[in-house]
Design a protein around this nucleic acid. Sequence first.
DNA 1: CTTAATGCCGTACTTAAGTACGGAGTCAAG
DNA 2: CTTGACTCCGTACTTAAGTACGGCATTAAG
Lengths: 135, 135
Amino acid sequence: MNYSSETFTIGKLAKAAGVNVETIRFYQRRGLLPEPDRIHGNIRKYSAADFARLRFIKSAQYLGFSLDEVAALLRLEDGTHCDEARALAEEKLAGVRAKLVDLHKIEAVLSRLVTDCCTAQATITCPLIAALQRA
Amino acid sequence: MNYSSETFTIGKLAKAAGVNVETIRFYQRRGLLPEPDRIHGNIRKYSAADFARLRFIKSAQYLGFSLDEVAALLRLEDGTHCDEARALAEEKLAGVRAKLVDLHKIEAVLSRLVTDCCTAQATITCPLIAALQRA
DNA sequence: CTTAATGCCGTACTTAAGTACGGAGTCAAG
DNA sequence: CTTGACTCCGTACTTAAGTACGGCATTAAG
């Protein structure tokens, strides 16, 4: 009966994608994954397409898209809404660049703090904490 | 009676520090701010020191410290635990640098996605979404 | 045939960092 | 002396993205 090697139970899919079983059920409730066919009465049967979709979700998430945004992206999946997808991506990109600017500043402050700390042994208060109080 | 210009009500302090009144009460419950003296029976009276401490919390938070870590930092305030403060900062710094690496990668992917999108009008599917599916 | 592993389901819990709410008391200005 | 703005308190709610739980059914292995 099981002529296709490309079907997964929920457990297999979870393991393959490196996520928790509950996460898949959760994505289903959120509408990010379609309710799959069932076999043997009640067991969810996933296809390679489901696996790809799960990977898509995880990639987009890594790129900073929230699950709501991923859902939006998935709704544009037919390729006729290129502009909208692009707008979403541009927004994300702007956010990422802003975050980069901030993180570079933070890195500078933190690394200065770390080098200052304990070089000035004479001072009574920790220079790191003192600096933070002035920051 | 009010001979000091350096006292705040909770509302004034909140406004001065740019936070919500409830946030101050919340920080008090978390032990990040001391319970202040009360005047007129029951009104919290804050000092410039409280204001400084609040600024400290917000700076540290901006640098990526969680409230728990801020609390730890504040416990080291006497300056005799420079090493520990430094260790915390070094940990944060490592985290920030890792995040920077990731964000740079993400920026590259996203900006390529954005430029690819809609340049290849011939394709049926949106290149952005297709790329994400392969990512 | 039995037992351990899965699967199913709905519901509740988690974490972080606040925000909001409702009712009561108080204070300063007009 | 009243009105509107603060303040007090404890409790409950919020958001995001899951995770965990408990009870029951099914299934694969030994």
